[in-house]
């Protein structure tokens, strides 16, 4: 989870985050951007994991208002929380949301606003925007589509065919979703 440390550095405007546990690990050996150094305080071997410095981050969330106040259900689990960290680490944040609501609605549960409007460059209403992955408390993962994707990954020809039908063959996300099918998408809604 070193990747998380990269965004952690960004979040605080630091060029790197120091870690101490890469001794003997090929992750440090294979990546010249992870720089070994001697800790100035303890004298121990440490490694500088460079900040990710993302220009743009795009995340998907449950709901937001037109100003970019973004609400994520409060019991976000660890993987989802990386979204929030990333959202707090970039210059330009774009958020797609399941539901676009009025600011008055946002104000009824301000504790759920994990990203305030001033942080958000753009908010877009895109239901099922995380398909085929789940959005906590909104949509389930699409296991059937995962299987399609994995099967397509068996060889180059099959993968090209997948890209042709789902990505290159669709003009936009709405067309992509219509390929998945409204009836099937309905089954993915969290009740």
């Amino acid at each position: 989870m070193l990747a998380w440390d990269r965004f952690r550095a960004d979040r605080e405007g630091m060029p790197f985050w120091p870690v101490y546990f890469l001794g003997g690990n090929d992750v440090a050996r294979d990546n010249p951007q992870i720089v070994p150094f001697t800790c100035p305080v303890t004298g121990k071997q440490a490694w500088a994991v460079p900040a990710a410095k993302p220009d743009v981050i795009v995340i998907h969330a449950c709901r937001g208002d037109k100003y970019g106040n973004i609400q994520i259900q409060e019991r976000s689990m660890l993987p989802q929380y990386l979204n929030v960290d990333m959202a707090r680490s970039c210059k330009n944040l774009i958020v797609t949301v399941e539901e676009l609501v009025d600011t008055e609605e946002i104000k009824k549960s301000p504790h759920l606003t994990l990203i305030p409007a001033f942080r958000t460059a753009s908010v877009c209403h895109v239901p099922f925007g995380s398909h085929p992955t789940p959005t906590l408390s909104c949509t389930e993962e699409d296991a059937a589509h995962y299987e399609t994707y994995v099967n397509a990954s068996a060889n180059e020809e099959a993968f090209e065919a997948y890209l042709d039908s789902y990505i290159r063959g669709t003009k936009n996300f709405t067309e992509y979703l219509s390929l998945i099918g409204e009836t099937h998408l309905k089954t993915l809604e969290v009740r």
């Binding site: 019991r75 689990m77 660890l78 929380y81 990386l82 789940p134 408390s137 389930e140 993962e141 296991a143």
Partner: peptide, 25 residues
């Protein structure tokens, strides 16, 4: 639960749900 992203985990009875600690770090 099918993954650490799964909705099923959200409502599993437990003593604590802690997002930020011990968390990723």
């Amino acid at each position: 639960p099918s993954s650490e992203y799964g909705n099923e985990l959200l409502n599993l009875p437990c003593e604590a749900q802690m997002t930020t600690w011990p968390g990723p770090w």
